[in-house]
Design a protein around this nucleic acid. Structure first.
Length: 217
DNA sequence: TCATTAACACGGG
DNA sequence: CCCGTGTTAATGA
């Protein structure tokens, strides 16, 4: 679909022309690398070196933190038009990632080399504004994630998680297993199975093998 | 009280 | 048979 440069240029314009000034977009077409990434690809891992900043055109990316045992816990999702604020730490000296990023569905993005992004910080006001704005909204999401972990009980977190999935996937039929959900919410499958069963009894969803169909969300 | 772990049966692919 | 699912019993925080 977006195999030739013109396609992703148009896509990027549609997504970012209101945010990034025209000369910057032209620079983006010169220095940015367009990529199509299949679902389930790990884009970044904890401790890995960051040498580029991603701009998300289509799809979604799951951002996770790891506990000391190496188990994952979901922080938030990135969607189209977002960028990973943490990767922008490359503008402030830090080059090692503190999170794991995995594509939640097939995704298209533009990678901006760190050195190029650093130059833009000085030459394009709209770029530094975009970086600041991105930091701001990612911080908000982080606080929401902290609130959820600290103050919300598991049934509430599960309902929020399922709603988010529907929004991210754009489909009320979620293709996932109880174990997957348990991993994301950092709990055991027994609990997820039990909670899902009670939600099914309430008529909020229906359960199938490898799938959860949402009725209300 | 509620989550976790281990263990088990069931059934679909 | 393998894996996902649904459930229970024991244990712990």
């Amino acid at each position: 679909m977006t195999s030739n440069p013109i396609d992703w240029h148009q896509q990027a314009r549609a997504r970012f022309s209101g945010i990034l000034e025209a000369p910057l977009l032209e620079d983006l077409f010169i220095h940015g690398h367009h990529m199509r990434v299949p679902e389930g690809t790990m884009l970044m891992d904890v401790g890995q070196h960051m040498d580029a900043v991603p701009l998300l055109l289509e799809g979604a990316i799951k951002i996770m933190r790891l506990d000391p045992e190496g188990d994952e816990i979901l922080l938030y999702f990135l969607e189209s038009g977002d960028s990973c604020a943490l990767s922008m730490g490359t503008y402030m000296g830090s080059t090692k990632s503190s999170i794991r990023a995995v594509t939640e569905r097939d995704t298209t993005l533009v990678m901006v080399p760190a050195a190029v992004g650093q130059t833009w910080m000085r030459t394009f006001p709209s770029w530094s504004a975009f970086v600041m704005e991105s930091y701001q909204s990612r911080l908000e999401e982080m606080l929401t994630a902290i609130d959820a972990l600290a103050f919300m009980d598991l049934p509430t977190r599960l309902k929020r998680y399922l709603s988010d999935k529907v929004k991210i996937q754009g489909d009320t039929k979620l293709h996932t297993t109880h174990q997957d959900i348990a991993n994301d919410l950092h709990t055991s499958r027994v609990v997820i199975s039990r909670l899902l069963k009670s939600l099914e009894r309430e008529g909020i969803l229906s359960l199938h093998r490898n799938a959860v169909h949402m009725h209300e969300f």
